[in-house]
Design a binder for these strands. Structure first.
Length: 214
DNA sequence: TGCCAGGCCCTCTTTAGGGCCTT
């Protein structure tokens, strides 16, 4: 179901978590999206899923095919990027967004939507930056490591867009739950998570304590 | 498991360098 909350509702558990598979690391170097996966969270529950391969109009290299399991044959039969991204923009609507290492996914989101004259008005938060602050003791902050570290649900389908988006959503919800438990917060505001990811590590406890008191 | 880039973040820093993350 679409987000039923009024526009502007400040909840970190109601948004769209998304992930791209791409032909490389930089849209500025000609790399394109080849798959997008997303889940909509509504008050902490996955209510909708979005997934599609997309044909970038060029072949992807052997490394990407091996890394993602997405072959050129699969992409040849996929709808074009423009069609998929238009549908994704409609799916997102005005919701806020979350991605793991959002600086990467937001660059591709902006590049692909820019090609079709669309944009998503919501703000993008980063689960990687949040995890570095909430779990500084983790072995590292790769998505797969954090999923295993917290024994979060997964089906071993790493590096596919929908699977990674679902794992990111579970990680995000786990972080919200841990903050609620540790600091006695109610529903965690999205704006608080944004501030968290911009706060130096040594200032995180003070920020959350202040949020709890306020 | 690498390269391509770019933002974040730590430190043997700030007039910089390099590791971590993403595909």
């Amino acid at each position: 179901m679409p987000n039923p909350l009024p526009p502007g509702a400040d909840r970190a558990d109601t948004l769209v978590v998304f992930d791209f598979e791409t032909s490389g690391l930089s849209p500025d170097q000609g790399d394109r999206a080849i798959e997008i996966g997303a889940v909509r969270l509504v008050e902490g529950v996955i209510s909708e899923r979005f997934q599609s391969l997309m044909n970038p109009g060029r072949r992807v290299n052997a490394f990407i095919q091996q890394f993602t399991g997405i072959s050129n044959a699969m992409l040849q039969d996929a709808p074009p990027c423009a069609e998929v991204m238009a549908a994704f923009a409609d799916f997102v609507g005005t919701d806020n967004l979350v991605a793991h290492n959002a600086s990467f996914d937001s660059r591709f989101l902006g590049a692909e939507l820019g090609r079709i004259g669309r944009h998503t008005p919501g703000v993008i938060a980063c689960s990687l930056l949040a995890a570095r602050r909430i779990y500084p003791e983790a072995p590292n902050h790769k998505l797969g490591t954090l999923v295993r570290y917290h024994a979060l649900p997964h089906d071993n389908s790493f590096h596919r867009a929908l699977a990674d988006a679902e794992m990111t959503a579970h990680l995000w919800l786990r972080m919200l739950a841990d903050l609620q438990l540790q600091f006695g917060l109610g529903a965690v505001p999205f704006t608080l998570m944004q501030r968290l990811t911009r706060t130096p590590r040594q200032g995180v406890a003070a920020l959350l304590t202040q949020a709890c008191a306020g």
